[in-house]
Amino acid sequence: MTVQATQRSRFNSQGITTYLKTLIPPVVAIAIFLILWQVLTMTTGTLLPSPVRTVQEAGDLIFDPFFDNGGTAKGLFWQVLTSLRRVAIGFTLAAIVGVAVGVLIGTSELMFRALDPIFQVLRTVPPLAWLPLSLAAFQQANPSAIFVIFITAIWPIILNTAEGVRRIPQDYNNVARVLKLSKQKYFFKILFPATVPYIFTGLRIGIGLSWLAIVAAEMLIGGVGIGFFIWDAWNSSRVSDIIVAIVYVGIVGLLLDRLVSYIGSKVVPEEQKVG
């Protein structure tokens, strides 16, 4: 018992040490950053608020993200939620269409040759360049924003899925050929599971791009949403609000990325992780 107890305590102390080791450096870095920020805004004659002033001015935003005063005057939680809803719709559509098209061009050499050049050109188009076109097509703000998300997120999903299909190990295909697996069984038992790691790589890149695109798109289309909130704050010279909103955007973006990769790690078997 005593031996076990001492061992456990040693493990615990070791656990705490490693925990501290990972925690202290970023905390120190943030502190230095804040101090620098404070010093610089105090010494130079800039419009930018110091961290202390930011907290004072935008306190309500930070401490109460859930207020709703009607119209666009809503707490940051609601603003972010609206943006997330758009991303969710656009990204889901992109995932469904992207995986389907990716499998298509991955399995068919002909389709790959036909479509790959088009995709290579389209994927380099910046997200916002699509906005006028989608506004012209949909005539409405919301579907246009969703379309921009869709068109931004779809390319990495298509290309990674196609790559995954083309990189299915020859061994698995040989197993399928020797067993003479039916098309349907081949798809569900071999092709799809083998491609999953690549699909998730595509999804992770896609979600990051979506979040980048939504902020920019919302600035232009207006209404509720974190993007327009920032633009609105600029117009009303609420610079402190902008800073708070940017912190929110950053944290949400990080969480989205971590969420997709977490799901990926749960779905993809250990052996198959893409190095």
Binding site: D171, V175, R177, K189, A194, V196, E270
Partner: peptide
């Protein structure tokens, strides 16, 4: 003329499907 289950192969690297 082509692969078939009457000539089953035990591959060098096992070729088991890792998700099954």
């Amino acid at each position: 003329k082509g692969p078939g289950p009457d000539r089953m192969v035990v591959f060098q690297n096992y070729s088991l499907l890792p998700w099954l």
